[in-house]
Structure formats: structure tokens, C-alpha cells
């Protein structure tokens, strides 16, 4: 599923967050969006999943401009999306198994026995076994993210969106999650969009990288393009330097 973003603008009051984003998320590829905190990455993602409406511009998913469809039509398009939130966003009143089963129970008429099989299957994909009856509060941060991923892929979506999937995790767990993103992408052939601050992880999982700066895309290309770029903004960000054109907001 290809996603074309054209001239996307969004402001909150007098604060212009997206100043005209043009970006193509290629079908079946992993695109990582990087950039400073507050540069509009999450706002961009929220537009793609319909949590925000743009002031201007369009987001075309498989030929349909999702900024102009009705809520019902968009709801149908959303069924092709799986989202892993930064906090995993597991329903804390439900067990792990119920969390993963939730989209299946809501959107399919599968018998309960088949749903439980799929739950076990999806949890196995993310490397978890025997955790179905545990509540999210009983899981570690990394386990929560993995359960969140299992829930996101429960309906075999065509697009997977990861909002800072490795933030707050130790390096080993971060690499495990990166591997999971790569394996899931390969296994399901999905289009993946990842928001990340983790540069080594980005180079590992990305087919394409887009860097946002002041509400626009400052560079879009392959990991090799990013490694060889001379753009001072991109270089400063990738080299983790405080000195340079990128400034921390006071």
C-alpha cells in the first residue's frame, strides 16, 4: 500500500508545525522518519491515521485521498493499518491474550477457538509464549511493546506504523524490537512507517529515511544517501552533536 503525502500543512493556533510535507511512503518498504523532538513527526503520523485533519494538503492511500473521505469510509481504510504506539497503549483492563484477540473479536466472525489460535500465533511471532493470561501491568516495557506489535498485526494489516518503538528500552531489547520490525515486514510484506531517534537502528531497518526539520522534509533517501550526505543539518543530527545549525528549543 503506497502512501503519498502532498503539501501537508498543519498549525495549532499560531504554531505552524507542518509547513508543507511532500513525502512518498513506498509500498512494501520500511520508511523511517527521523528528526528533532517537536519537529512534527508524531503530528505527521497522526494525520496518516486520521487522528488529526490537515489545514491543507492531501494524503493519498491507494489512490484515495483520506483527508476527504467520510468517517465511515476512513474507518474501513483504517482496518488495513496496524499501529504500535510509543507506550504500547495496551488496554490495561484486559489480559495480554484479550488485547491481541480484541481486533479479531471486533472485526471478524471467527470462532473463539480460531481466535485463540491466532493469538498464540501472533504472540509467537513476537517471541512470547504463555503470557496470554497476564495483565499489561505484569509485563516489562519490552514485553508490552511486543504484545502491542502482536495486537497491531492481528488482522494482517497492509501498513504498520511504529511510534518510537525502541524509546526507553535497553540496547539489547531495542535490537530485538528492530529485528522484529524487519522480520514482520519481510514475513507479511507490509509497508512500514517508523518514527525513531535511534540512528543505528534506523540504518538497520530502513529502506528509506525521511528527516523532518521545521515542518518540512529536509532529506529523503536510502540509508546510503544519509551516510554520504553533506547537509549540515542532517550531519549534525546523525552525529549527535549539540553544536551546529540545529538548536534545542529553550
Amino acid at each position: 500500500m503506497q502512501i503519498d503525502i502532498k503539501g501537508l500543512k498543519k498549525s495549532f493556533g499560531s504554531n505552524l508545525v507542518l509547513e508543507g510535507i511532500d513525502l512518498t511512503i513506498e509500498d512494501g518498504k520500511t520508511t523511517v522518519i527521523i528528526g528533532q523532538t517537536g519537529c512534527g513527526k508524531s503530528v505527521l503520523i497522526k494525520h496518516i491515521i486520521g487522528l488529526l485533519r490537515p489545514d491543507e494538503g492531501e494524503i493519498v492511500v491507494n489512490g484515495v485521498d483520506i483527508t476527504k473521505v467520510t468517517r465511515k469510509e476512513f474507518s474501513d481504510i483504517l482496518k488495513n493499518f496496524g499501529v504500535l504506539f510509543q507506550s504500547a497503549a495496551l488496554f490495561d483492563s484486559m489480559t495480554t491474550g484479550e488485547n491481541v484477540a480484541f481486533p479479531l473479536r471486533e472485526h471478524t466472525n471467527l470462532p473463539e477457538s480460531r481466535i485463540m489460535e491466532i493469538v498464540k500465533e501472533k504472540l509467537a511471532i513476537v517471541g512470547l509464549k504463555g503470557v496470554e493470561s497476564r495483565y499489561p501491568a505484569e509485563l516489562s516495557g519490552g514485553m508490552k511493546k511486543r504484545v502491542g506489535l502482536a495486537r497491531a498485526i492481528a488482522l494482517d494489516p497492509k501498513v504498520l506504523i511504529f511510534d518510537e518503538p525502541t524509546t526507553g528500552l535497553d540496547p539489547v531489547m531495542s535490537d530485538t524490537i528492530d529485528n522484529l520490525i524487519m522480520n514482520t515486514q519481510k514475513r507479511l510484506g507490509v509497508t512500514s512507517i517508523v518514527i525513531s531517534h535511534d540512528i543505528p537502528g534506523t540504518y538497520k531497518i530502513a529502506h528509506r529515511i525521511a528527516m523532518l526539520y521545521k515542518g518540512t522534509v529536509v532529506l529523503y533517501g536510502s540509508p546510503d544517501d544519509f551516510k554520504s550526505t553533506k547537509d549540515p543539518i542532517v550531519r549534525q543530527f546523525l552525529e549527535r552533536r549539540a553544536e551546529g545549525p540545529l538548536q534545542v528549543e529553550a
Binding site: A89, L90, E106
Partner: peptide
Amino acid sequence: GTMRVTEQIDALYTMSIN
């Protein structure tokens, strides 16, 4: 409120559940 700040309400929405 807890569901809102922990993105659980957003999660419902992205699962096409009003």
C-alpha cells in the same frame, strides 16, 4: 482520562472502533 493519556483511546480509534 488514564486511557486518554496512555493512548488507549487513540488505539481504539486506529482499530476502527468508535
